[in-house]
Simulated assay, not measured.
Amino acid sequence: MDERNPFITAEYLFLYRLNKLSPHEAAQIEKALQADPELAQLLHELDDKVQIEKELSLLQSFDANQAFSNATKLIAPKTPFWQRRTWLIAASIVLLLVSGALFVPFLLRSSDERILIARQQGVHEPILKLASGEEIKLDTLTQIRKNGVIAQNNAGTLIMEDHTGIDAGALNILTVPYQHTYQVVLSDGTRVHLNAGSSLSFPTAFTPNERRVKLSGEAYFEVMPQAKRRFIVEADEVQVEVLGTTFNIEAYQDDAQIRTTLITGKVAVYVPNEDSRILSPNEQSVFDRKAGRTFVNKIDSESAIVWQNGWLDFDNHTLESVMRRIARHYNLAIEFEEAQTSKILVSGKMKMYSDANDVFRKFEKLGDVSFQVHGKQVLVRSNHSL
């Protein structure tokens, strides 16, 4: 443990709390805790998740660099380092929170194979594939009148018109590539916000009994209430049924989990071999593909839809899963030099800047990882052996 660096010491406190240090490193921390009651109190406060979240909400609007600069000016230059070390460690933890990401490294020894997150090739604009098989690029087109499909394309939103007599079983597919988001207003008035790398299959007109669509990727739904026609979203193994509500589904095929988050109203979530789950606002259903099981969490539902405003929000996610989101947003190919680095757990919230390098710099502030960027290729490296 480098006791001269408060950021590294702060990291070791987190590792100690998780019982992830070697016996020698743990002995060093315990010796320091015995010698410094303030440091012991700081460790105790790290276990108070409510307090940490409260402080984070108050501090997110601060400029981390300026905060550190102002704080260090308050310390008399003649004060011995060992008398101000605990204060600096506390300040470091605050800065980890304020900077927008908090790493908690785990000592996982997985295979030495590199993990590669591939970028998307050859797709540059949203495309609408009609039931007839014809593909229409939506980058410049303003109006569609083909094969019974009548729609307006206006400023990133496709507006479908409802017409009777159309074959309700014929599905259109709206595909949104990486580095884009798009909206579609379905024939019933339901609005769907599609995230990067997503696709939605939907009929030109719905049947009299139900409204059914299929999702791959992530989308936020604002369902038009119709008491006599339920609205159903199929997302791989998960099926979500609503009457009129707002909710978010994250169901990328390369993700290990499918998340359904309810914002308003109520939804029923169905998965194979399980009873249905009824969600209330601020609840999230998580289906684990590998385990084939579902569990429900209480969350701040707003965190699931901040992507619409260009934010990235993650709570105790692996670095790999966060990098997948970043890869989709910027259409990057991201590779981990060591598989174990991809398992680092990270929490935080940050703006998705126009330049991906600004996002990577945020992560690098913590000292655990570094990024080598060459055009659209990104290599993630650990700065120290975990």
Rank of each mutant, 00 (worst) to 15 (best):
Pro272Leu: 00
Arg212Tyr: 09
Tyr220Leu: 14
Ser347Lys: 11
Ile278Cys: 08
Glu302Met: 12
Arg211Pro: 03
Ala219Asp: 13
Arg293Ala: 12
Thr264Gly: 05
Glu250Val: 14
Ile263Arg: 08
Val267Gln: 00
Asp300Gly: 09
Lys228Glu: 14
Val269Ile: 01
Val346Ala: 13
Asp254Gly: 04
Lys298Leu: 13
Ser280Asp: 06
Lys214Phe: 11
Val322Phe: 07
Phe221Cys: 04
Gly217Lys: 05
Ile249Cys: 03
Tyr330Pro: 11
Gly244Ala: 04
Ala268Met: 08
Ala327Asn: 08
Val286Asn: 05
Ala251Asn: 01
Thr264Ser: 14
Arg277Pro: 11
Arg277Asp: 11
Val238His: 00
Asp288Gly: 10
Leu262Trp: 04
Ile334Tyr: 05
Val238Asp: 00
Asp236Cys: 02
Ser342Arg: 11
Val233Gln: 01
Asp275Gln: 15
Glu283Val: 07
Pro272Tyr: 01
Val242Arg: 02
Asp236Val: 03
Phe247Ile: 06
Thr294Ile: 15
Ile232Gln: 04
Phe231Ala: 01
Asp313Glu: 13
Val306Gly: 05
Leu332Asp: 09
Thr260Asn: 02
Val233Phe: 00
Ser285Phe: 06
Glu210Cys: 03
Val296His: 01
Ile334Glu: 07
Lys266Tyr: 06
Thr261Pro: 08
Glu234Leu: 03
Val346Cys: 08
Asp288Leu: 12
Thr261Asn: 02
Phe231Arg: 03
Asp315Thr: 15
Ser303Tyr: 10
Ala251Tyr: 01
Ala333His: 15
Arg211Thr: 01
Ala235Phe: 00
Ser276Glu: 14
Val286Ser: 02
Ile334Cys: 09
Tyr270Ser: 05
Ser285Lys: 02
Phe221Pro: 11
Leu279Gln: 00
Thr318Ile: 11
Arg277Asn: 10
Glu335Asn: 06
Ile326Cys: 05
Arg212Ser: 07
Leu215Lys: 05
Leu262His: 07
Val233Cys: 00
Arg293Phe: 09
Glu241Leu: 02
Leu345Gln: 14
Arg324Lys: 15
Tyr270Met: 01
Gln308Asp: 06
Asp313Phe: 12
Thr260Arg: 02
Glu234Pro: 04
Leu243Phe: 14
Ile334Ala: 09
Val223Arg: 08
Asn316Ile: 10
Tyr330Ile: 06
Gln253Lys: 13
Lys349Met: 11
Ser280Arg: 13
Lys343Gly: 07
Glu234Ser: 01
Val233Met: 00
Ala219Glu: 12
Phe295Val: 13
Ser347Tyr: 05
Ile334Arg: 05
Thr261Arg: 02
Pro272Thr: 00
Ser342His: 10
